[in-house]
Design a protein around this nucleic acid. Structure first.
Lengths: 166, 166
DNA sequence: AGATTATGTCAGTACTATTGACGTAATTTC
DNA sequence: GAAATTACGTCAATAGTACTGACATAATCT
């Protein structure tokens, strides 16, 4: 059943198709703003973790400072994100979404969320077991273990790690 | 539970992280060959659907002819893919992986397949229900309906659509 | 005071992708 | 059989996203 040489080509391919179409929704909206996928990612995380610093953002996105610079500057210039001096450490710039930024982040997330929920329904229809928890756990397990800490913010998990002030 | 404004930010984010790490495995191997993700995608589909034409490949990847050109040329020059004149239509170029190409495709798919299976175990451990079928159906449902035809090749489905000669 | 840290910026480069235009060979249509 | 269409290849120009390396500034830590 579509597993040749012990390799699961089918799921590999599905992940490609799923992600391609998953990102196509916001891509269309972004085009109107002259923004790209990079802007989306930055805006998403600033929106999700308001007050995160530039360094934290770099760490989450796993890109370099130079790659972030242009994108972040554009988001700030267009009034989607603001920088505030860090209260404890004045070298830090805490990033916050503006109302405009939050609105765009929401507009971008809406079709993606709709697609996900439709897919969950299509996939799980009746079997009212763990529902989305199952897919959530699958995706979580797809992430490199070392980086798994990045994903639990905002949710009511906070597994292990001492988060300090929040 | 991590659903603000009715938007499922958690799953959106997980899909991002999952896909990022999912592609990081082959990326490292590709670097040794001077290849990028584009080469991987082309090689994957040529390997999966040996004999597909350039036009079909463009349609599956949803990129332009010009984008494919350079990448495909490199794969042919490095003896990973060969072009054969189409038997029915001599204008067409049927693409086939060489032994070398198949070996590389396999090497690239191996860590991805391993990651997927580990994730399935982590996610479904005991509940021996539909197992991978569930995630498969979820991902399938994430793909745009019009494009869903692209994904059933090689598997024993062939839902609906008149496939003609194959 | 000196080292380190957080951030910003500049220069140069690479990969992947785009649109548009043009050429060639093969097939289909009238 | 001539004309239109199709499949493919290629050239030129451009854009978005990423990279490495280097350097500057301000703030904090030792």
């Amino acid at each position: 059943m579509s597993v040749e040489d012990g390799i699961d080509f089918a799921l590999i391919e599905l992940l490609f198709f799923a992600y391609r179409d998953f990102t196509s929704d916001p891509d269309q909206i972004l085009a109107d703003y002259g923004f790209g996928r990079a802007h989306h990612r930055v805006l998403h995380f600033v929106n999700r973790r308001p007050g995160l610093t530039v360094a934290e953002l770099l760490d989450v996105l796993k890109i370099t400072k130079q790659s972030l610079a242009r994108v972040l500057k554009q988001l700030i210039d267009t009034d989607h994100v603001v920088q505030l001096q860090g209260p404890r450490d004045r070298r830090q710039r805490e990033l916050y979404p503006t109302a405009k930024g939050r609105a765009l982040a929401l507009a971008l997330a809406r079709p993606q969320s709709r697609r996900i929920h439709a897919a969950l329904h299509a996939a799980l229809g009746d079997s009212g077991i763990t529902e989305r928890t199952l897919v959530e756990r699958f995706l979580e397990a797809m992430v490199n273990p070392e980086l798994r800490a990045q994903i639990d913010v905002g949710s009511a998990k906070m597994s292990g790690k001492s988060h300090g002030e929040h």
